[in-house]
Amino acid sequence: MMMAGGTLPGMLAQGIAAHRGWIALALAALVLLALAPLYLSPFHVRVAQLFLLSAALAIAWSLLGGFAGYWSFGHTAFIGLGAFVAGLVETGWTWPSPALAFAVGLLAGALACALLAGLIAYPILRLRGIYFAIAMLGVAQVLGELNNSIDAFKGTMGIVLPQLAPRAVEPATFYYYLLLVAAAVTLAIGFAVKVSRLGYGLLSIREDEDTARMLGVPTERYKIQTFVLSAVLTGVLGIIYAHSLGFITAGSVYRTDFSLNMIVYALLGGMGTLIGPVIGAGIMVVLTQIVLGRLLDTHMFITGALLVILVMLAPRGIVGFVKPILARWRGGFR
C-alpha cells in the first residue's frame, strides 16, 4: 500500500479529518464491543465472534469486490489456504510456545496467500465481470479439492491446531478479542485504502477501467496490489478462525458459503462502502444465528429467499437505501 502512493500520509490525514464523525463512531463501537464479553452470555459472545469474523471478511472482500468491482466468488480459497498452511507449519515442527507457533503460522499462511494471489493476479484480473467471478470460484474449488485429496496436506484427516488461549481465559472470550483486533485492523486498512489515491483509483476502475487508464491510473498495478492485500487479510482471518475452531478439515475451511456470504454482506449493506459490509454482516449474523437458529430445516430456504428479496428490494444495499433519506433529513434541518 505504501507503494500505491507516496502521498499516503498526507491523504490519510485529510481522510481522517474529513471522516471524523465516522471514526468517532467506529471507536465508540470498538469500546462497546471490547466490553461486550462482560455483559453478554457465552452464547451471545459466540454470535458476536461470528459477527466480527463475518464483518472483517466482508471488508477484506470489499477491497477488491466493492471498491474495484471485481467480484470474487472464491475468496474462501484464501481462508482455506491460510488455515492449512498455518496448521501444517504449526503442527509440523515443535515450537517452544503456542504463541510462537501461532506467530510463525500466521506469517507462513499470510505469505502463502500473498504468493498465490500474486501468482494468479496478472492473468486472472484480465478477466472481467462474471468471468473473473467464476474463475475465482474455480481457483477455490481446485485448491479445496487438492487439499482434500493429497494426503500430505491432511485435508481429509484434519489438523488439530494448538490452543492459543491461556489457561485462565475462556477460549471463546480469547478468540473474541483476537477477532476484535483483527476486525479493527482490517477496518483501519480498509479506511486507509479508501481515502488514498489507491482507493480513488480502484473506484475509477470499477466505474470504467479503460477511461481510468487514460486518466493515468496504473490499473494493472492497483488491481494486483489490492488483490494481494485482500487475499492476505482474508488468509489472516481464516487462520484465526481455524484456531478458534481448534480442528480443521478441508471441508470446514474451503466453503462455498464463505465466499458467498462475503458478497451477500457487502451487497446487503452497500457495495463499495466500508460501513456496508459491517451492517450487512450484523444483520445476517443476528438473523441466521438468533432468529433462524431454531429453524435448521429451512435455514437454506430462508437464506435463499432473503437473497432474492434483497436484490429485488434494495439493489444498492441498506446504505444506498438510507443515504437519500438521511440526506433529505439533514437538508431539512439546515
Binding site: I130, A133, M300, T303, G304
Partner: peptide
C-alpha cells in the same frame, strides 16, 4: 431490470438454495 446482471446471478443463486432446501 432493477439491478445488474451480476446481481441477477445472486437471485438465481438464492432460488437454487430455496429449491434445494425444498
Amino acid at each position: 431490470d432493477r439491478s445488474s446482471l451480476l446481481a441477477s446471478m445472486l437471485v438465481t443463486f438464492g432460488v437454487a438454495l430455496m429449491l434445494r432446501n425444498v
